[in-house]
């Protein structure tokens, strides 16, 4: 009897079909990435033929000047985007957390919209806006576009950190005579710093990964890595893309472990 009771309680999520679907699902997610990594070490130019192990595509990749120019642009944009969106996103989160605004719901709607609206619409509308203002398309226009979609993500992450934060700490500091500025830097800021860091990492990753918005807001000579990869895909230069992709996947994995390390919190 007790055997049966235990079995009933522990039996959820144990079906063979569930396990099989999960395994097939993960294979589906990973096989293309693994194949791509494997081909990046293929000496042969054509994917159909295995020409032995080689790192020549990696060497070619490191010697590609245009690629490195694109990487430099990507990093500059990524860093600028991270700094500005951290500041703006944190301000919005603090405001929305502390105060009840007259148009609070509308503010939340505006904040959520850039996350949901398809990137292509964000891209074309900013393109038209920059053309109207006669702003030349380049690093500045791409950075502005990236900040526009990054703010929302930073705000939502910092807001969720603020929700976990015990507000009485701030009140206690005020009672003990700290001014608003001191309360922020000594109490609030250290407590929400993990959220700000995670938001910043997310903003940085999204910026270096973005293709669609960048594609519409970049001009001649302001290529980013994604746009460069796209042009290589269109020209069919496959082995070198495999090498770049493998490197990027490795960096992504490192970043994910970084984010999850920062965000990991005790099980609740």
């Amino acid at each position: 009897m007790s055997q049966q009771f235990r079995q009933n309680n522990l039996d959820f999520g144990e079906g063979r079909g569930l396990k099989l679907t999960t395994i097939v699902g993960f294979l589906f997610l990973y096989i293309p990435i693994l194949i791509l990594m494997l081909y990046s070490f293929n000496a042969s130019r054509v994917a159909s033929h295995w020409g032995g192990w080689s790192i020549k595509w990696y060497i070619e990749m490191f010697q590609d000047r245009n690629l490195w120019a694109a990487v430099t642009n990507t990093l500059i944009i990524g860093i600028l985007n991270t700094v500005v969106s951290i500041i703006l996103g944190t301000l919005a989160a603090l405001g929305l957390h502390r105060f009840n605004y007259r148009f609070h719901q509308s503010l939340l709607l505006i904040l959520n919209m850039p996350i949901i609206v398809p990137d292509i619409i964000l891209g074309v509308s900013l393109l038209m806006f920059f053309v109207l203002l006669n702003l030349s398309l380049g690093i500045v226009s791409i950075t502005i576009a990236h900040i526009t979609f990054s703010i929302s993500f930073v705000t939502l992450i910092v807001l969720s950190k603020l929700a976990q934060f015990n507000k009485t700490l701030e009140d206690a500091a005020k009672d003990l005579g700290a001014n608003n500025w001191q309360v922020f830097w000594k109490i609030t800021f250290p407590n929400i710093l993990p959220g700000i860091t995670a938001g910043g990492l997310l903003a940085f990753t999204m910026s270096i990964d973005d293709f669609i918005v960048t594609y519409f807001t970049s001009g001649v000579g302001s290529t980013t890595l994604s746009v460069y990869i796209y042009s290589m895909v269109k020209r069919g230069i496959t082995p070198e893309i495999n090498a770049i992709s493998t490197l990027l996947v490795a960096i992504t994995i490192a970043l994910i472990f970084g984010i999850s390390h920062i965000q990991r919190k005790p099980q609740d």
């Binding site: 993960f26 997610l29 293309p32 194949i35 895909v233 992504t252």
Partner: peptide, 27 residues
């Protein structure tokens, strides 16, 4: 974490990876 890795991998790459598999001379 295994779900997150493809989630954060550049989607051009994720799309492109299928060319190696489905291509005329693919896997």
């Amino acid at each position: 974490l295994l779900v997150l890795i493809p989630f954060w991998t550049n989607f051009l790459i994720r799309t492109f990876s299928w060319v190696n598999i489905l291509g005329y001379k693919g896997l």
